[in-house]
Amino acid sequence: MKRLFPIFSVITAVLLAYALYQALVVAPTDALQGDVYRIIYYHVPSAWTAFLLFFINFIASIQYLASAKESTQKAAKWVVIVIGVVGVIACFLPQVQHLLPTGMRPSAVATTVLAIPAFYFFVGKFFPGQRLDVLAVTSAEVGVVFCTIVLVTGPIWARPVWGIWWAPGDIRLTSTLVLWLIYVSYLVLRRFSNSAQTQMLAAALAVFGALDVPLVYFSIWFFRTQHPQPVIGGGGSMDPRMLHVLVISWMAFLCFAFLVCWSRFRLELLHREVEEAHAMKSLVGAGAAAKASVPLNRRPQ
């Protein structure tokens, strides 16, 4: 695994450079906005990556909370399966179909819904025990970085195009900002809490944050329908060449995010091993610590 890391870094660097070349040179200039629109190739992929990471954080937190007890673990598993099955069936019912925004195909929504149980079991299988919490902290930290990029590049684009830095009533801007605030408070909690219960508290906060996001969305949705704002052209179609570059950019950003997460994950594991070794040392004295220093504790707890 460790040998893969430099190889993957090189691939990511090449991909990022290629995406930059595509975005600045190959992609056609926008008819209305001119060259300023090119920031979209950084803005949108960062946003998608950030949301994906926050989603992973949510899944890992749920898994961590559920893994505390055998019974909750079993219950959570069934709830997730039911969500998957009901969600997929619901997408094809005519009553639900006309609730979907126009242009969104039910099969696409069903695939997205299926991602929830798929992610849930994937995360539970490959990140047992304490590693779930390491995954949660890693994805939250990297997610906040990408979300910050979104919040910084947005106003840079908005100033020349809309004429304002920030549209306070806009649904996407505000919900992204609130999401960022929630995850920053999550990281603050982790920083300020120094007890053994930090992981449990943080997981509970992550669940609260995830419950909050749809409510934020609806609270502003109504606000906005009352006071329409000049915002992103929602259903507008995109030149296929632009979409192509956008997808390449997203791939590059995903690789980059994966790389950063990977090294952060390893760092956090090492950090915990060092902490455990220190605790061990002070517990049983120097002699026993020397014995425990080689294998350390890589097992799930």
Partner: peptide, 23 residues
């Protein structure tokens, strides 16, 4: 929740306000 943290009086608004925004 903030009982278990350092400087808990500061922590409470930091945790509560972001979640309370929709309310």
């Amino acid at each position: 929740m903030s009982l278990r943290t350092r400087s808990r009086e500061i922590m409470l608004p930091l945790l509560l306000f972001p979640i309370s925004i929709p309310a």
